[in-house]
Design a protein around this nucleic acid. Structure first.
Lengths: 123, 123
DNA sequence: TCAATGTGTGACATTGGTGTGAGGGTCAAG
DNA sequence: CTTGACCCTCACACCAATGTCACACATTGA
């Protein structure tokens, strides 16, 4: 597919798709006329990238961890440096913290909304 | 307490504390000499603010939802505009999405690390 | 063929969170 | 009284993600 379709299917500005490519997060072939051409799996990848960006990971980190999250999961041992392991462990732990924070606040908002709706019903 | 202590206790640059105040996220009294003076509860609030910032919420939104997350939770009905409710519901839903995204990726990293450690043991 | 739409590159602007430094008060300890 | 640590304000700088615009070429449909 071309960039416009990918943009629609991922609800992502074309500008950003080119940026993600520049940052090494997604890959495209080129058609004879120079247009970018994407494989289907890129749709999911873009969604994943956006998700990770939204929870505060910078592209630098996303680029590092993405290969490890590929569903076609063969482990390329040469990639597995102690450095990489450390990064992954660190990011995993940070994710756990974020999950905790979000869960807590999510619950608090929910509780509040519940309380408000009761309040309103009572008035 | 003064800003330096708050900074230490929250592991937050002084610069940022002043910024959060400017954005209306925390509050300080002033000592006679002009120094900021914080109540104890601000420590928790700063931690909460930082947590929310880390998961990608802008200060503008944090400012809106913070009052609803106060543990001393009396509902001030005048604050409860339909607008506000909509914002809260929206942010709550976004949080749920983020939790899902983080959980998925957290698990994937963990699985990967597990697989790697087995791989290493086997080699 | 013409107009509209899509794509390419490149450059510049903006925004939000953050860093940093200047210049100047406050205060406690020596 | 001086020194050093802390605080104040203000301003400028930085970075990453994103927006926007200009200009050119490609494609497609009327």
């Amino acid at each position: 597919m071309k960039i416009g379709e990918l943009s629609q299917r991922t609800d992502t500005p074309v500008r950003m798709l080119r940026y993600y490519e520049e940052q090494g997060l997604i890959h495209s072939e080129r058609l004879p006329n120079g247009y970018r051409s994407y494989e289907d799996y890129v749709v999911d990848r873009v969604r994943q990238v956006r998700g990770l960006l939204e929870v505060g990971l910078p592209t630098r980190i996303i680029k590092q961890i993405l290969p490890c999250l590929d569903s076609s999961r063969a482990i390329y041992l040469p990639y597995v440096t102690p450095d990489m392991i450390a990064t992954l462990e660190h990011e995993r732990d940070r994710m756990a913290e974020k999950i905790e924070c979000l869960t807590k606040n999510h619950r608090a908002i929910n509780d509040y909304l519940d309380a408000v709706s009761h309040e309103i019903r009572a008035s």
